[in-house]
Design a protein around this nucleic acid. Sequence first.
RNA 1: GCGCCCGUAGCUCAGCUGGAUAGAGCAUCCGAUUUCUAAUCGGACGGUCGCAGGUUCGAGUCCUGCCGGGCGCGCCA
Length: 573
Amino acid sequence: MQHFADALRAAVAAAAEVGIDTVRLEAPRDEKQGDLAVPCFLLAKARGIPPPAMAAKLAAAMAPGGPQAVAEVTASAAGPYLNFRIARPALAQAVFAEIAAAGARYGGSSEGAGKRIVIDFSSPNIAKPMHVGHIRSTILGAALTRIFSHLGYTTVGINHIGDWGAQFGGLVVAIRRWRGEVDLEREPVRGLLDLYQRSKAAVESDPAFHEEAVAAYRELESGREGPVRETWRWVTAVSMRGFEATYKRLGIEHDLVRGESYYENLLEPTIQRIVAAGITEISEGALIVQLSTVDKGLKETPCLLRQTNGTTLYATRDLAAMFQRFEEFGFERCLYVVGSEQRLHFRQLKAVLKRLELPWEPRVEHVDFGLLLGPGRVKLASRKGAVLVLDDLIDEVVDEARRIIQEKNPDLAQADQVAEAVGIGAIVFNDLKRERVKDVVFDKSEILSFEGETGPYLQYTHARLASILRKAAANGEGTAEPDWSVLENAGPILMRLARLGDVVRGAAVRAEPSEISNYLLALARDLNSWYVENRVLGEAPGVTGARLALIRASKSVLGNGLGLLGIRPLEAM
RNA sequence: GCGCCCGUAGCUCAGCUGGAUAGAGCAUCCGAUUUCUAAUCGGACGGUCGCAGGUUCGAGUCCUGCCGGGCGCGCCA
């Protein structure tokens, strides 16, 4: 397919006598206008003729037998536009050949070979179960990891779990005092959550508890082995086991699990390094870096590295982690998949890197995303009260999927596995279908609906394509020489199939998986409409052959795209 | 007050680096199943692209101002 685009640009450049870079090839809004088009405004200006005249002149030059004719392509002028239509048989064969040759790699490339992308995602806090507030980072980060891998990058997914901080002093004390009151054996995660919440309250209301909590945290920070550290380790291990189970369900893996505690010993060297650079100052007893010289917007918000009481802060730990990551991985990009409420924080970190004059500062990116809102657009706060545990949500959606399968396809084999995949597909797609920056209103009824622009819709489309292929194989159909002329009406699908690589690349550049989601929705819509009108099986052998080739290629592309998002393509549902 | 983000159909959103009559899904209404899975498909209804200027041959897209909503703003993470 690419060779058509290249040939067309070259031909237009030659016919218009301009440099190839001034020729912009784009997809017309309306398919009827053509497969590709060149608006002739700029070309006309360069040559001093009116745009419609330019378009007409180019169309003539590119007519069959003309000096710049491109094989299999018809050029026509429509006002100031030059439209191209690629002959369907040639287009179909080129696209299908590419898809078949690349297989699971289709849509990918090797452009990232030898380059590393660090992706910090999910990063839940220990002692609490993962709740719905964590799904965005988790699902976005996992999708980005797959997208970059598909483009040949070496990805390093890091789970920066929150396993450090003063709150663990309180938790340790709560465990010490009340461990007999909750079931830490059978339901350790829920038990810990209970104790965690009680410790939060106790720290505020009970001065004695507060004092003990502070002492416990100091003990933890000291690095000494002992009961406090042992308890903390146990909490970490229990929590991680819970997270791992959820990740496994979602098909998500991290390459490294490095909590905040990992950087414990790097904090002082990090501070020393920044102090040595001479950019720090003491303000109101705290060690800070002024940022206004590199970012005017940060005039009133310097970066705090050390509190008056001597302890470090969030920013200190993140800076330590950034330095460490750059030294260890020499990343091409380092992505932080973290909510947009932390924009200021990351802007500050980048400003510190700028003040240090580190050339790799632009490679650090905050891949931010909008808020998760509850019904009525109120913020779904994790600290107060009832939050929806992620596993419970998954269970609920999977149950609904199972119910619908029972209703629509009671004879389906392996219905439980399919229900799991459909339920998870619904949740994952719900989080990837909109632009990252958009807030997500957590609407359970929407997640439980499997109609319209949903993961199950895409999986259903895929399953139907699979079903047609299965039946064709069983009938021994599709072996005849395809009659490509019957794909005359499949132009939009063919052009779309050809575009996956561009879409994946764009999604990577902008760290925006929704671009793939929207592409897949459009592809599925095209396909569902198409095969209603174009019967595949039982037609003349050449007709069936050509249509089967389209189905096969489409299934492959749809499957690849779903895989990138983290949704299982299903053979039946 | 300052900084940043968002503002397209009743609701939720697409609209690629500005380009040809602004597109989907949901909701509402009508229709399609003797044939490849109706978790589908077709049709109808529905839009001064927040407002006002500006740049441009051309602006939903770029610039400025305003309005509305949200997030954040030194010793939490």
